[in-house]
Amino acid sequence: MTSVASPTDRSRIQRRIPPFGGFNFTFLALEIRRILRNRRTLIFTIVMPVAFLLLFALPNKDQPLGNTGYSYAAYVMISFAVYGAMLAATSGGGMVAVERAQGWSRQLRLTPLRPAAYITIKMLSAMFLGLIAVVAVFVVGAIMGITMPWQVWILSGLVAWVGSMVFATLGLFVGYLVPSENVMQILGPLLAFLALFGGLFVPLEVLPQVLQDIAKFTPAYGVGAIARTPLLGNGFDWWALVNVLAWGIIFGLLAARMFRRDTKRV
C-alpha cells in the first residue's frame, strides 16, 4: 500500500519521557472538573453532611457544651466536617473502581504515566473534594451562627481535612478491590457505620462501655477525636494519633497491594 520511504524521516522525531512520571496540573485540574461535574458525588459528599448539620445542630444551638462556653452545635459541626471530608475523600479514591470498570486504567497503561503519579493525582483530587466538604460544613455552620475562636476553626478544619487522607487510601483500596462502578453502594453503609463508631453522629459517651472500647480501634475515631480537641481543650489524645497513623498505614498497604495485583493482571 504505502512505500517504506519515510521511516528514516520518522527516526528524527524527538522522543522524551515526561517529567514527574507524567504528573501535571492540567491532568489534576481535569480530574477535579470531573468530580465537580458528578452530581451524585456532590450530593453524597457535600449536600448530605450539610443537611445533617442543619438537622442535628440547629435544634441544639443554644445547648451549652459542658463548661467550655461554646454551643453543643460547634461539637456537632466539627463532627460533620470530619464526616463530610471522610465521605468525599473515600468517594474520590473510590473513583478508581469506575475507571477500572471503564477500562481507563488500562488505557493509561499505554501512556508514559507512572503508577505513582496516577495515585498522587487520585489522592490529591480526593483531598480536594474533602476540602470542599469541610469548607461547606463550616460555612453553613458559620451562617447558622455557630461561634468558635478562629484557631479552632482553622485547626479543627485542618485536622478534618488532612485526616481524610486515611479515607482517600481506603477509597483506593476498595476501588481496586471491587470490580464495580457502584463502589459507593458498598462504601456508603460502611462509612456510616465507621462514623457511628468514630463518635461523629453521637458522642461516644452515650454508647455502652463495650462499644466505646471497640470504637477506639475503628478508623474514624482518631480523626474525630483530634479534630474536636481544639474545641474541647481536653488535652491531646495520643491514642487518637496512633489510631490515625495505624489506619493510614493499613489502608495504604492494602491499596498498594491491590494496585499491584491489578496492574499485573490487566
Binding site: N24, L30, R34, Q102, W104, Q107, L110
Partner: peptide, 29 residues
C-alpha cells in the same frame, strides 16, 4: 508505540476534547 484497543478505555464523563487534552499532557511534544 500507541494502540487502539477493542473496547473500553474511555471515561464516559469526559468530553471528546477533554480526553484528548488530558492524554496529551502525558506525552512531551
Amino acid at each position: 508505540v500507541a494502540a487502539v484497543m477493542q473496547t473500553g478505555g474511555l471515561l464516559r464523563d469526559l468530553t471528546v476534547r477533554e480526553t484528548v487534552v488530558l492524554t496529551a499532557t502525558l506525552f512531551p511534544g
